[in-house]
Computed example of a mutant assay.
Amino acid sequence: WQPINPLGLSLVLRQEMFGETWAPVIPAFFIDGLLSRKGNVMLKASVSRNHKFPTLNDLYFLPGGNPDLKSEHGWTYDAGASFDVGWKAPFPVSMGGSATWFDSRIDDWIIWLPTTKGFFSPRNVKKVHAYGIEGKLNIAFEPFKGWIFDLNGSYSWTPSINEGEKMSPADQSVGKQLPYVPKHSASLTGRLTWKSWSFLYKWAYYSERFTMSSNDYTITGHLPKYYMSNVSLEKGLKFKPVDLQLKLAVNNLFNEDYLSVLSRPMPGINFEFFVGITPKFGKKKTEPKTDNH
């Protein structure tokens, strides 16, 4: 609904069923408005209810599944602004970006944690307050005809705090960051395109993560921060029946030694090759029109 031209309002009602169990009605309300036509500056905000059933893996994965898990539920709020500008001199350039603040308060958050039996198992955290800021910036320009360069950057600050009750007198998890959730993360992606060729470089950063809900700084209590670099080269080929996309990717370019999960080393430099096939079957060529006299 647009009560006035630069303002838009929308309401979404959703409901899900898991087995024979219906989730409560999940509403979401969105509002956005044009603050300035110069720079296409937009303001956006939303509020939505959250409800997430445990997945089949959460319930029944062997070993570690927990059939007694409760569904996650809560509310999420966010607000932000975005812009989009462009100019043509001395060559075509476009730039856009956004900044968003969010706040989520979730009950019975599902999290997988290590057990004394040597495997991970999910459990519910009674109350979690997840909030933070996310920023994105992108720029694209064409310095020479046919050569297009895209640069995209993002940064996230995402504290996720356990605000539940102590499970026991010795429980030190209340008021601490959730295990395996980095507080800071960032990425930078550059893509150079020329005709049907494309070269991409992606750099990513993840801050330290704790492995225990008490956030202890011990050898096994936290995982150090790490940086990651990936590159890929793509080539598109066009044929009459199909289009082909060939892609060679090099992951962990600098052979970084890192962990995503405690005691599970991640692979060093590794290579992947992809073939994409897009059929053109059934597409008829448009015949030129002729005049009948």
Rank of each mutant, 00 (worst) to 15 (best):
S196P: 03
P24V: 09
M167Q: 11
E208A: 14
D150K: 10
W22C: 03
S232H: 00
S160D: 05
V261H: 04
G118W: 07
K166E: 09
Y180S: 00
D58L: 04
S154L: 01
G118C: 10
I111A: 12
F210R: 01
A81T: 08
W109Y: 12
V275P: 06
G33C: 09
E72H: 05
A140G: 15
G74M: 11
I4E: 05
N162D: 11
T220A: 14
F83T: 01
L259N: 06
I106V: 15
I31T: 09
V125L: 15
D216M: 11
I4F: 14
S154F: 01
K238C: 07
L246R: 01
D171K: 07
F144L: 15
L9D: 12
D107K: 11
N255E: 13
E234A: 15
M17P: 00
L43P: 00
N50R: 13
L62P: 00
K285D: 10
K52W: 02
V261E: 05
T115S: 15
D84R: 08
H184D: 13
Q172F: 01
K284L: 11
R14M: 12
V174M: 08
W109T: 08
H129A: 12
T76M: 14
L192K: 04
M17V: 06
L13E: 12
Y60A: 03
W22L: 07
S121Y: 14
K225E: 14
G221F: 03
E272S: 15
T115V: 09
D78M: 10
P90A: 11
D150I: 05
F239E: 04
F273M: 14
G33F: 03
